[in-house]
Amino acid sequence: MAIISTNQQIQPATVQAAQILWNYMKLDKPLAACDCIIAMGSHDLRVAEHAAQLMLEGWAPLLVCSGGLGRLTRTLWHEAEARKFARIARQMGVPFNHILIEDQSSNTGQNIQFTRDLLESKGCKIRSALLVHKPYMERRSLATALQVWPEIEYRVSSPPGTFLDYPNKDITQEELIHVIVGDFQRILVYPRLGFQVTQDVPQEVMNAYEELVRQGYTRFIVNTKAAGEK
C-alpha cells in the first residue's frame, strides 16, 4: 500500500532543495566491524534487506531488528516492523539464533533505548553497533544514539541509492520531501529537548529547509510545544 497516491510533478528548484537536505542527512561513512547490527524499523523494507546483507557479509555476529509501529507504519501495517525485518533476514539466510527482535519501540529514541535494554537483558556486552536505517535517517539516527546510548561506538549505513531513485510503490517523491523536511526539523529542535546531540547545520542546508517549508512541505513537522515523540 502506498503512503499517498498523488503523483504531483515536482519543480526542479524543489528537487534541488530536497537534494541538499538528503545530502546533509546521509553521512556516507565507511563501514567497520561491530558487535551488532541494529536494523531500525520503518516502512522501508530495503533497510531490512541491507541489514541482512551486511550481516551475511560478516560486519557483525548479531542482528537486532527494532521497531513496533511508528508514525508512518501505524496506518499501513498490523505487524511490527521488527518482525517483518526479521522475517526478511531469515529468508535471506541469516541464522535464526543470530537475530533478536525488539518490537515495542515507536520512535528513533526508543529504537536505541529498547535495544540497549534487550541486549543487557540477554547478557550481551556491546562496545560497538552498526546502525542501519533509511539514507536520509543516517544523521538523525546517529545523533539520537549518541544521546541515548553514548557509551559505545557507532557506524551508520543505509541501502544504496540516490534521492531521485529512492521513491517506489510505497513512497512518492512528494511524500519523500515531506518526510525529509520533518526529519531535518527534528535535527534542529530535538537537541534542546534532550532527544539528540546537536549537529552543525550549514547555511545552505538551512536555506533549503526554509524554502521547502515555505512551499508547504510541512506534513511531518513536529509541534515543538508538545513534542513528546522522538
Score class of each variant (00 low, 15 high):
176 L>H: 02
138 E>F: 07
118 L>K: 08
50 H>V: 13
199 Q>G: 05
123 G>T: 06
103 D>I: 01
146 L>G: 00
92 M>N: 03
79 E>Y: 05
133 H>A: 15
195 F>E: 06
24 Y>R: 09
105 S>Q: 03
144 T>K: 06
32 A>H: 11
48 A>S: 15
225 K>L: 12
30 P>N: 11
100 L>C: 03
12 P>V: 07
44 D>C: 09
147 Q>T: 05
111 N>S: 05
167 P>F: 05
138 E>S: 01
189 V>T: 13
113 Q>F: 05
63 L>K: 00
229 E>W: 09
28 D>L: 10
135 P>R: 04
180 I>D: 08
83 R>W: 02
205 V>L: 03
156 V>T: 13
174 E>R: 03
155 R>G: 11
31 L>C: 10
97 N>Y: 05
216 G>A: 04
15 V>C: 11
207 N>K: 10
63 L>W: 01
170 D>A: 01
9 Q>V: 09
197 V>R: 13
47 V>N: 11
114 F>A: 03
66 S>G: 02
129 A>E: 08
116 R>D: 02
106 S>H: 12
144 T>P: 00
38 I>L: 15
113 Q>W: 06
137 M>Y: 08
44 D>S: 14
99 I>E: 02
16 Q>A: 15
22 W>K: 12
119 L>Q: 00
3 I>S: 04
76 L>Q: 14
176 L>M: 12
81 E>I: 12
18 A>I: 07
103 D>W: 00
122 K>H: 09
203 Q>K: 06
96 F>E: 11
91 Q>M: 04
187 I>Y: 11
42 S>C: 15
12 P>H: 10
164 L>F: 10
134 K>S: 14
196 Q>H: 11
47 V>E: 11
117 D>A: 08
116 R>N: 02
223 N>P: 13
49 E>P: 12
49 E>K: 15
59 W>C: 00
196 Q>S: 14
175 E>F: 00
119 L>E: 00
81 E>P: 07
133 H>N: 15
177 I>K: 03
230 K>Q: 11
77 W>F: 14
128 S>Q: 08
161 G>N: 09
103 D>V: 00
74 R>Q: 12
54 L>V: 08
92 M>V: 02
35 D>I: 10
121 S>P: 00
197 V>I: 15
110 Q>I: 01
100 L>A: 02
206 M>E: 04
183 D>L: 07
1 M>L: 07
95 P>N: 02
128 S>N: 08
14 T>M: 09
142 L>W: 03
45 L>N: 13
1 M>N: 06
95 P>V: 02
174 E>D: 09
203 Q>G: 00
34 C>K: 14
86 A>R: 07
230 K>P: 01
136 Y>R: 09
148 V>I: 15
33 A>H: 14
214 R>W: 03
143 A>K: 01
145 A>S: 05
57 E>Y: 05
18 A>Y: 06
161 G>Q: 08
19 Q>P: 13
54 L>N: 10
211 E>S: 11
75 T>L: 01
69 L>H: 02
210 E>N: 10
77 W>I: 01
98 H>M: 04
52 A>N: 10
38 I>F: 07
82 A>Y: 01
189 V>F: 13
188 L>D: 12
49 E>A: 15
194 G>I: 13
